[in-house]
Design a protein around this nucleic acid. Structure first.
Length: 460
DNA sequence: TGAAATGTTGGGGCG
DNA sequence: ACGCCCCAACATTTC
């Protein structure tokens, strides 16, 4: 008798520590790995341009390792077709947590089970399920520190799954990757992405090793300096599930035995994974996070509709070097250093008074690591409207932040060639430099905007 | 995971 | 030697 499980791959494009794949492989005679490209899923947050580029290469990379079946269409319909074609009797997947994914998956699970197909879902993307972590009185957390403490106290019992033997893998008729049209053509703007990234599971694992080898011991301080390559840059790999948080957790913990001195730095690094967990926790318990202020009193805030300033921000032409360098890094590479993300986001919200959702949408389209939970929670954090958010009076001064975290202007000069000749003392405020530059004057006055922002926020 | 405004302290110049 | 003032450096408060 046939005994085939379909493993429906989504944000888990890997073979190592893939719970759905491992369980399907243990429980069934043959396994089909399916990727479904549904152009209509996501509502107002359909996969963005930079992420599409990554997805293409991630799928390509995976297809070199294992026979992948690729289909286009609505997941419900595609699964029905595949089950019919292969006589599969089971469907396995790792859970997604976006509200629209949860809705889709629970409908599919119900309908599959009604038609007698075994259907099982697993946790492949998080260390802790959002519903598992609760306060003493049974609520979800809305403050990071107690949340992460509760996670650490709960602990993790599972070890990563090894990569299964792939001899059981079967295929069905598959679309070619090209038919998904994920890569930009006319114009091909992905040159900067190609120069900076190597998607795929193997590269993710290597990146983690390299990070541990060269940067983990100076992570706590180094992570704040955008000109240093001290962050892991694993975010897009995590976004597509090319590496699992559980695997990272184990690798880091395994270091502690032989490298006691890395304990502090390792915990700091894992606490950043903790922020990712926290974002998923918040999104799960407040599914409107991407569109609505978590704190509803912010609904009264009067945002400016200012297409010119928005454009200047997007293109890195605000006249504030640290903001512009970040925005140009984003446009060119699909990524921005975390410190600079906070500065650039604060500038959009508290200097230009543009709705955080405008920034969210721009990041969504341009980031290779665009992740609904991280992106929406982080924007709300900066806006002050989120859970455990930055207080309204915490306003980043782009000059001071630049002087503090890029004192030599190395990061600036990497992205703003117009500032090449500007001496160090003026690099973060080039408008004070005597010579005329081919670089914009500040589009707003930060000191004035800061006072105005305090006024506006206070009146909420 | 902020920065400005305000307060405090103590060393040194100076009559 | 003393008191006074200035102000840099640091601490605390406020937004």
């Amino acid at each position: 008798m046939k005994d085939t499980a379909v493993v429906w791959l989504r944000n888990d494009l890997r073979l190592l520590d893939n719970p759905a794949l491992t369980h399907a492989w243990r429980d069934h005679k043959s396994v089909l790995l399916l990727y479904i490209h549904d152009q209509n899923i996501g509502g107002e947050f359909k996969i963005g341009g930079a992420s599409k580029w990554w997805l293409h290469h991630s799928l390509f990379s995976l297809s070199k390792e294992v026979n992948l079946t690729i289909r286009v269409g609505k997941a419900q319909d595609v699964l029905k077709d595949i089950i019919k074609e292969t006589s599969a009797n089971a469907v396995y997947w790792n859970r997604c947590y976006e509200p629209y994914s949860i809705k889709r998956d629970s409908e599919i699970k119900k309908s599959l089970q009604e038609s007698g197909i075994k259907c099982e879902s697993f946790n492949g993307s998080l260390l802790f399920e959002p519903w598992e972590i609760k306060t003493k009185v049974g609520d979800s957390y809305s403050v990071y520190t107690p949340f992460w403490k509760a996670c650490l106290a709960k602990g993790i019992d599972r070890k990563p799954y090894t990569k299964p033997n792939l001899s059981k893998v079967i295929t069905a008729k598959s679309e070619s990757l090209e038919t998904l049209s994920l890569l930009p053509k006319k114009p091909d703007w992905a040159g900067g992405l190609r120069d900076n990234w190597q998607p795929g599971e193997k590269n993710a694992l290597k990146l983690l090793d390299d990070f541990i080898e060269s940067s983990l011991n100076k992570y706590s301080d180094g992570r704040n300096f955008p000109s240093l390559n001290t962050t892991s840059r694993l975010s897009p790999h995590l976004r597509f599930g090319e590496i699992s948080p559980l695997y990272i957790w184990n690798v880091i913990h395994n270091l502690y035995g032989s490298h006691k001195s890395l304990h502090k730095e390792g915990e700091k690094f894992l606490s950043e994974i903790g922020w990712r967990e926290f974002s998923y926790h918040l999104l799960y318990h407040f599914p409107e996070m991407p569109n609505k202020n978590f704190k509803s009193k912010f609904d009264a805030f009067e945002w400016k509709s200012d297409a010119v300033s928005l454009k200047a921000w997007q293109k890195g032409m605000t006249g504030y070097p640290i903001v512009d360098a970040g925005m140009r890094e984003l446009w060119h590479t699909g990524y921005m250093h975390n410190r600079v993300r906070m500065i650039a986001a604060s500038f959009l919200i508290k200097d230009l008074f543009i709705d955080w959702r405008e920034g969210e949408v721009w990041f969504w389209d341009t980031l290779v690591d665009a992740d609904l939970a991280n992106n929406s929670c982080s924007w709300q954090w900066v806006a002050g409207s989120g859970a455990d958010a930055a207080p309204y009076f915490r306003i980043f001064n782009p000059v001071l932040q630049g002087e503090k975290f890029d004192p030599e202007g190395l990061y600036l000069k990497q992205w703003i060639p117009e500032l090449a000749e500007v001496p160090k003392q003026f690099i973060h405020q080039p408008w004070k430099y005597a010579k005329k530059l081919n670089y914009p004057k500040p589009i707003v006055d930060h000191d004035y905007c800061r006072k105005l922002a305090l006024e506006k926020y206070k009146n909420l």
